[in-house]
Write a protein that binds this DNA or RNA. Structure first.
Lengths: 146, 146
DNA sequence: ATTGCTGCAAACTCTTTGCAAGTTC
DNA sequence: GAACTTGCAAAGAGTTTGCAGCAAT
């Protein structure tokens, strides 16, 4: 995704295009490993040292509100964000703490079919996401590329 | 589960049995709707007004460390805890914010089979949990019993 | 007696807020 | 120029920590 796309995306959702919003949007896309607000801020400050912490937080929440990015659930404390809004699941590595995206349309279909046949009473399902916990094999405990 | 069971559980994990630990363990079991640390503290103080906030936090984390309770992932801010350690999934209600347990052994079997056939490369799966997001039908937006 | 646990209060981290000044459309 | 957005600094919520005194084994 490039800068023009970001502008279009913001305008389509009725948001004004500002350098700060473009920077946050770019950061969440580039730091595709589910960055925290803090990581987004640090990344942006390399190029654009003046962005305020409060602005980073406000902007992230605005983008979540408008469904441009999503929040990622974590076991512990801090909030993480994800630029990928297409349905996908997450691999949580116990050793390194990293969270990787996992795409699998066949699995999505199986789940959808299963719940079509086995309705949960009194509940309307909107989305089903898997949290797959485990550990990456082989490589160092620090970082694994998928 | 009764008080004797709690004591046994603590001892088995090498923890000393104290009134505070028993109270926290009981609270998480009784408040089965995934209480926060704050809710656990308030509940305990009804019977036992002297427990310190720090103790509640420390005790909850100790119990998580020893796999006696688990943390529940939420989209936002605060940590929640769950006394049910048997594999189960969660229903997240968008309207009320409540999180309900969902047990389904058939589904667990399907998932297990699926990943036996479709291994994720370089990843050893330990646990698969579903986050099912949606909303409870009918009833008030406030509270739904399952 | 030894080791571990608790209470307390202070400190910390992450996040939100209020508002004046500055931008975008 | 109207409406929205930002920077800043202060406040807020939730959680953690250090340590003296106390309790469990």
């Amino acid at each position: 995704m490039n800068s023009t796309d970001y502008k279009t995306e913001l305008r389509e959702r009725g948001l004004k295009v500002t350098p700060q919003r473009l920077a946050v949007l770019e950061a969440v896309n580039v730091l595709h490993d589910h960055p925290t607000a803090d990581e987004v801020g640090s990344f942006i400050r390399k190029m654009y040292p003046n962005i305020a912490t409060g602005t980073v937080y406000k902007t992230l929440e605005t983008l979540v509100d408008k469904d441009i990015i999503i929040r990622v659930k974590t076991d512990r404390d801090i909030m993480r964000y994800d630029a990928v809004t297409k349905l996908h699941h997450h691999l949580y590595c116990k050793d390194s703490g990293q969270i990787k995206d996992y795409f699998d349309d066949e699995l999505n279909r199986i789940l959808k079919d299963y719940f079509k046949k086995n309705k949960i009473k009194k509940f309307r399902i909107e989305e089903i996401k898997l949290q797959i916990t485990g550990s990456f094999k082989g490589k160092s405990k620090k970082e694994v590329k998928l």
